[in-house]
Design a protein around this nucleic acid. Structure first.
Length: 453
RNA sequence: GUGAAUGUAGCUCAGUAGGUUAGAGCAUCAGAUUGUGAUUCUGAGGGUCGCGGGUUCGAGUCCCGUCUUUCACCCCA
């Protein structure tokens, strides 16, 4: 018998982790709900035709494909097989795949239900996604995304709301030191044009995005390797690294030198900043010309959130996409904008920062201990009573030594035990022990719930 | 997908230039203690040394392959 193992890049979540994850998810869910997003779930698997071509070539390679059921060899493309054309072979034996993100399935859903939905449609979605990536720190093959998207409106109110939601979520989670970086696809295009990267925008973006990681010199070096160099490139780089204190001043300056695409970007950002004003969230917002992340489908504002002093990469990302629904044959152009929280990385970050409290209101609050069958039966009545008062509690199911019962409560990390013996039964006053402080007191039943709740 | 490192008890790790029966701490279980845990004492259980092959009289130790985990690149939550 082989030792059981998990597939690469996947994990089990035990009770301690799950309680924390649930807390995290509940926090984000409550933020989404207060901003008026409605819940949606879609299947883990989609038709491959829905997924391919939406994430660029890299993305297509990272899709988990599902082998057709039955005798898939029967329908395999024999010609491709003999020629060693793996792409064609793959297409002939696999027609479904696991979802790579939540945005594309959402766009598919919107197009399929366009006439039933009240536009603009705002939905949130919390489900796992899968990527056939090589795992490393903060990178898994199965992980959860928490998405909130709004489609059917161009209003930049949505972008402003995204900033506010991010701010609210991280504040609620106890994270103080985080940055919401914002940029715009139009601005990036303008920069690329000015730098002489026509037709090489993608390569320009990839190199530019590494700026804070590898520095100006290396970025210029990488650009040169790809044939993007010269005085204009140098000039654009100087523009990017210059960081005046005031974002609005920078907007005005850039507006004079940008092309139309760039001006559109500046106008969008100005509007987002104006809407946010002094509201919560504006303080953590950072306009960053080097932010060039972005799935191939973003067309407007783009966002990314990082937590300072934690090396887990970006914990949240998103942006506006204008053409995604058209990729599914929608005649109407539906603009959408959304954000995705990566809770696996947020979990890792919170753990690294020690932000998970020890007080865990998700689990059992109290274990009822006893000494023999008579007191155990009494304890069972008690547990029923406490539960109807909304207290999460348990009775130790076996007759056992008190030491064993306390050990059990201790191992479980329970905050309280209630000890029921002959004395307690006759007096009606119960012994409540606080396992964290080691103190105990005797209380009438009626007061137990409010003391430990 | 490319390049590197790692793997010994449930956990953290020792293990000497290949040499008898592979060790420690913590954890677990039982008992000192028939109404008090996280502190003390005593004892017990627990290891195909990741897996497969090779070199050797002999491999935890050397070589090859493979898997896992980790790190960098690519890209990303």
């Amino acid at each position: 018998m082989e030792k059981p193992t998990l597939p690469k890049g996947t994990r089990d979540f035990g009770p301690v982790q799950m309680n924390r994850r649930l807390k995290l998810l509940d926090t984000i869910r409550s933020v989404f709900r207060t901003y008026g997003f409605q819940p949606l779930e879609t299947p883990a698997m989609e038709n491959l035709s829905t997924l391919t071509g939406k994430y660029g070539e890299e993305g297509d390679q990272l899709l988990f494909r599902i082998l057709n059921s039955g005798d898939f060899l029967k329908d395999a493309n024999q010609e491709a097989l003999t020629n060693g054309d793996f792409k064609k072979v793959s297409a002939s034996i696999s027609e479904k795949g696991l979802r790579y993100d939540l945005t594309v399935p959402f766009a598919r859903y919107v197009v399929m239900n366009q006439h039933e939905l009240a536009m603009p449609f705002r939905r949130y979605q919390i489900q796992p996604v899968w990527r056939a990536d090589r795992p490393q720190k903060g990178r898994y093959r199965e992980f959860y995304q928490c998405d909130a998207d709004a489609v059917g409106t161009d209003s930049l109110i949505c972008e402003a709301e995204i900033v506010q939601m991010i701010h609210l979520a991280f504040t609620k989670l106890g994270v103080k030191d985080f940055k919401i970086r914002i940029n715009h696809r139009g601005i990036l295009s303008a920069l690329a044009a000015m730098a002489g990267a026509e037709g090489k925008e993608g390569q320009f973006f990839v190199a530019l995005d590494k700026l804070d990681k590898i520095g100006t010199e290396k970025v210029l070096g990488e650009l040169a390797e790809r044939g993007i160099s010269g005085p204009q490139t140098q000039k654009v780089m100087e523009l990017i690294i210059a960081k005046p204190g005031n974002a609005v001043d920078l907007f005005n300056k850039l507006q004079e030198i940008f092309n139309d695409e760039g001006k559109r970007g500046i106008n969008d950002l100005k509007e987002v900043y104006r809407l946010l004003g002094d509201h919560a969230g504006s303080g953590s917002l950072v306009f960053d010309l080097s932010l060039a992340r972005g799935l191939s489908y973003y067309t407007g504002c783009i966002f990314e959130v990082t937590i300072s002093n934690v090396a887990v990469g970006s914990v949240c990302g998103g942006g506006r996409y204008d053409n995604l629904t058209m990729a599914f044959g929608s005649k109407e152009k539906l603009s959408g904008v959304g954000i995705s929280f990566g809770i696996d990385r947020i979990y890792d970050a919170l753990e690294e920062l020690g932000l998970f409290g020890t007080d865990d209101h998700y689990g059992t609050r109290v274990l009822i201990c006893h000494f023999d069958e008579r007191t155990r039966d009494f304890a069972f009545g008690l547990v029923t009573q406490l539960r109807s008062a909304g207290i999460a509690c348990e009775v130790y199911p076996d007759v056992a030594k008190l030491k064993k019962q306390l050990d059990y409560a201790n191992r479980r990390g329970l905050p309280f035990v209630l000890i029921v013996g002959e004395e307690e039964m006759t007096s009606g006053k119960l012994t409540l022990k606080d396992l964290r402080s080691g103190t105990q007191q005797t209380l009438p039943v009626e007061l137990i719930a409010q003391t430990i709740g």
